[in-house]
Structure formats: structure tokens, C-alpha cells
Amino acid sequence: MSTLNTLNPHSWVDNHADYLYAYALSRISDDEQARDLVQEVFLAALEKVDRFEGRSSERTWLTAILKNKIIDIYRKRSSGLTNNKAEKAAVHEQEDFFHEDGHWREEHYPREMAVEGHDPLHNKEFQHVLQQCMQKLPALWLAVFTMKHIEDESTENICTELRVTSANFWVIIHRAKLNLRACLQKTWI
């Protein structure tokens, strides 16, 4: 029994608030919403305290609650009306990447990108551009992309949570990357 983790709500804010806030902010890019989420997580957690079995750490447990709330936000964002417009525009744009026979259109040829400095992974400027390009994706695509590539969620889970078919999932994964890469190339010159 001594190896089980315990919860101590009296120090939740000190120990986890900043972490949860940064976690939420990086995923939903909305400061106010991120703050609200942190509060919601703590309040929801209080109601579940007696169901905590101690098998995971306090932080892991709180983060799991946060993850579910972020997915709710993804779902809400991607079912909005404004997003449908953005999505149509992006689909349209994507159709232009290739000729009907599947060849790249010449103006969309991927080209080598020169990232200054030797380590693009730690190039702040490039990261900023990347962030901007991600925000340009339709909300549903960004949600699918993030859940797959960052959270490592299973494809089945993503399809269920975001209510997309498996066929659409693959279309979105493909298009999201085409758009993201094209945006990087356009912006980073």
C-alpha cells in the first residue's frame, strides 16, 4: 500500500497550476480559456477525489482530466459554423496542389527550405512561424493533427471523439500536412 500515490488538494495550485496552464495554453492558444480550464480541472478533480486509486501520480491524474477537457474544446471548435468556411477554403486550396492525374502543380513543388542556424528544432523564429501556420489550419484538422502527432491518441479514439469517419481521418491527416508544409514554405523565405 505504501507505493500508492495520494492526493493533496491543499497544494494543488502550488504544485500543478503553472504546469496545467502551460499545457492547456500550448494546445488551445487562448489565454482566458486556458485559465478557465485550469480552474475547471481542479473543481472536476475534487468531485472525483474518492475515485482516485493512487496508481498514477497526482499530476498525471490531473493532466488526464485536462486532456479530456481539451478534446471537448476541439470538438466544439470544429463543429462551429465559421470553421466550416475555413475548412472549405482549405479543401479548395488543397485541390490545387495536384493536377488531376496526381502530379504536383509546378507552383506547389516542395522546395528545400533554408532554416538559418544549424538547429531548426531550436530556432525560435521558425517555431513562431510554425505556430502561426498551425493556427491557419481549420480547427478540426488542427484537432486531428494534434491528437495524433502530439498526444499519440489512437486513430479509433480520435474518430470517435471528433466524430469523423476513418476515411475522413486519413484525408485530414494528409491535407493538414500538405497545408502546413506549404504555409511554412511560403512564409519561411
Binding site: S26, P120, M134
Partner: peptide
């Protein structure tokens, strides 16, 4: 495409490490 995935992962882990504070 592979590099972009790496960079996106990096972006998210950086965001968590150089923490913005409440």
C-alpha cells in the same frame, strides 16, 4: 514532413518547459 513532425513535438514540449506562469 518528418522534420515538421519533430518540430511540432518540440514546439509543444518547449511550451511546457519554459512555462508561462499564472
Amino acid at each position: 514532413s518528418a522534420v515538421i513532425n519533430q518540430m511540432v513535438k518540440q514546439l509543444f514540449s518547449d511550451a511546457n518547459s519554459d512555462q508561462k506562469h499564472l
